[in-house]
Design a protein around this nucleic acid. Structure first.
Length: 321
DNA sequence: AATTCGGGGTT
DNA sequence: AACCCAGAATT
């Protein structure tokens, strides 16, 4: 959960998640949909799928226990070099370095590392430094201290160098340019995407949701039937096309295609994508009988069921519009 | 080596 | 708005 996500944001998710899946065994035995539901809202959903797959891997290959060999631990889905070092140094006080956003900042300033950290060459230098500075005595606590120093003293902007225990040896402070490290990397560009979504309601208030593809953005999560608007295309026409698709593949009454009511625009911004979703509403008289399936692609969902579903924030916004 | 993955808090 | 976050996997 903490991969690229702040501690303060993670804590409530962590508490709920461990209440639901208290052990590796429980997580390994769970359905992926339930894991995604517990994760929904947190983002970077591949982490959830990796964690689930990783639990099963640990169950099958390591008797449900955390392997202490760095190579074996690193072979588990979702566990990279940082997480290997974090787990083994914190839990078993093994001398393995860590390199997260905080440590990158501290080391970059301490040694005036010239080069953006998103480049492989710079990464190599930083990992080398992270290992060089790591003592043999209590390396786990040292790693923890390095991160906390970055989080509380050596902050991204306005570092409190006067209160820093490393001020005597900091090259950045000596050169009075500490805050110019780490060097800025490439900034990712934003793609603007216009979409339509259809809120199809039954008389009892349930709405139709579909599962997104297993790969790419928001994998396997739920949203209203939607489509991407092409350049110069009219949203209303595309919404009718989405309905036509539902009629074709879902056996719905064909007349709903003509009863679309535009009900507003939902905006959602991801870090690398901005979605503008035109929401249309239509009424369905009855839900077609659906075949039983352990992993359905469509569901009629009541509002009270939202929390049992992997509903990403973007979907939630459009539904609640 | 570069891109792709969310979402929210801070500046 | 831009930046950043207890990164990892994929392309």
């Amino acid at each position: 959960m903490l991969q690229q996500t702040r501690v303060s944001v993670v804590i409530p998710y962590y508490e709920r998640f461990l209440g639901r899946f208290p052990t590796v065994h429980a997580l390994a035995a769970a359905e992926e949909d339930d894991v995604l539901a517990a994760w929904s809202g947190l983002g970077f959903y591949r982490r959830a799928r990796n964690l689930h797959a990783g639990a099963r891997q640990m169950e099958q290959d390591h008797g449900g226990e955390v392997p202490r060999d760095p190579a074996e631990l690193g072979a588990i889905k979702g566990i990279g070099r940082y997480t290997v070092g974090a787990i083994l140094s914190a839990a078993f006080d093994m001398r393995l370095p860590i390199l997260d956003g905080n440590v990158i900042r501290v080391l970059s300033r301490l040694f005036r590392v010239d080069g953006p950290p998103d480049r492989a060459a710079t990464q190599k230098v930083l990992w080398g430094l992270a290992e060089d500075v790591l003592p043999t005595h209590r390396p786990g606590d040292f790693n923890q201290a390095l991160m906390d120093l970055g989080a509380t003293v050596c902050k991204p902007s306005g570092p409190i160098c006067a209160a820093c225990p490393l001020s005597d040896v900091c090259e950045g402070l000596a050169a009075e340019d500490a805050e110019s490290f780490p060097r800025p990397g490439r900034k990712q560009k934003v793609r603007f995407v216009e979409r339509v979504a259809v809120r199809l309601r039954l008389p009892d208030g349930r709405i139709l949701l579909e599962r997104r593809p297993a790969r790419g953005l928001l994998p396997n999560l739920w949203e209203m039937p939607a489509a991407e608007v092409s350049e110069g295309e009219a949203p209303g026409g595309l919404a009718r096309a989405v309905c036509a698709r539902l009629v074709r593949s879902h056996g719905l009454a064909a007349d709903l295609v003509d009863d679309l009511v535009p009900c507003g625009v939902a905006e959602h911004r991801f870090s690398h994508r901005h979605w503008t979703t035109h929401v249309f509403e239509a009424q369905a008289l009855a839900a077609p009988a659906a075949p039983e399936s352990s992993k359905p692609e469509r569901r009629w969902v009541a509002i009270s069921e939202f929390e049992d579903l992997g509903l990403p924030t973007a979907s939630r916004k459009a539904i609640e519009l």
